[in-house]
Design a binder for these strands. Structure first.
Lengths: 150, 150
DNA sequence: GATGATTATTAGCCTATGCTAACTTTTTGC
DNA sequence: GCAAAAAGTTAGCATAGGCTAATAATCATC
């Protein structure tokens, strides 16, 4: 191991490659829960507004068709986030409520942060929707602090 | 139409629902191109560093298996972003290079922005990887301006 | 230049997330 | 209380993006 300058052969290189891979793996993991989080957050909102979350309302707000909603709700039920009965509205489990609360919290912080940067509300809402699933705790704390002191 | 207070019945409500749906549709669209963008960006980097992008290196850096890389490269080729020959390295088309450049630009801005907020480099890199696909032009401009004056 | 190691591909499987078409159930309005 | 409308479900299809196992090609070394 004399020639440390070889392509790909240093320890440092290896560590960099692995760390890069871990970042991508992290992003893929975040992606997997994105849809579930969006649904649970929306369901919580609908329940708050209307006392129940009907598939038809979820469908309209998510911009997907009713069968897509049905299938996704099936996964959420399987994963213990919601309860449902055939032809009935959907409700959150304890776990679902906890997740919804966390998501709402994150969403609020990201949104307030973007607004405090001077972004228009429309764009802020859109970007927050996409960004909220990809901010670490650490970043979220910085966002919150920044929005606070603005 | 006297009772404007009815659930779901106002024009404003309808507009809000539609705008919400559009936000989600936008996020889904962004998600569809995320993987392609990550690959193209990485391929550009590898070519810059090594003169070529080998599947095995893409695989190591993306943290996925070789067959997954092969399948994804197939899609990129189909979409006109790369050229490839069997058992050979991959190269970018004009279109691929343009996309890579744009992605790199976005990535840099988001990364610099996060760093200028005071985030540690490790976390900044990870979060940038996830966030970069979900920032609008407008937000990007604000990020760039903020990082500049810091 | 044969051969073992490395790299790339193919086949085949799985899950998530979307869709349309067809059907069932529930709700609503006379 | 019945018929039409609205809502929900099921079946079946497609694509993306993961995986493992098996196969094929290339490279490096003696």
């Amino acid at each position: 191991m004399i020639d440390d300058e070889n392509l790909e052969s240093t320890e440092a290189e290896a560590r960099a490659v692995e760390s890069r891979a871990e970042a991508f793996i992290g992003v893929r993991e975040a992606r997997r829960s994105e849809v579930a989080e969006d649904y649970v957050e929306l369901i919580a909102e609908l329940i708050h507004e209307n006392g129940e979350a009907r598939p038809v309302d979820i469908s309209a707000r998510m911009g997907v068709t009713a069968p897509t909603v049905a299938k996704t709700l099936g996964r959420l039920a399987r994963d213990g986030l919601i309860t449902r009965a055939k032809y009935r509205s959907v409700f959150l489990t304890e776990e679902g409520r906890a997740l919804a609360k966390e998501c709402r919290h994150r969403h609020e912080i990201v949104l307030r942060f973007l607004l405090s940067l001077g972004l228009d509300p429309e764009t802020a809402e859109r970007d927050a929707e996409g960004i909220e699933h990809h901010v670490s705790e650490r970043t979220l704390a910085l966002f919150a602090a920044f929005a606070q002191r603005s």
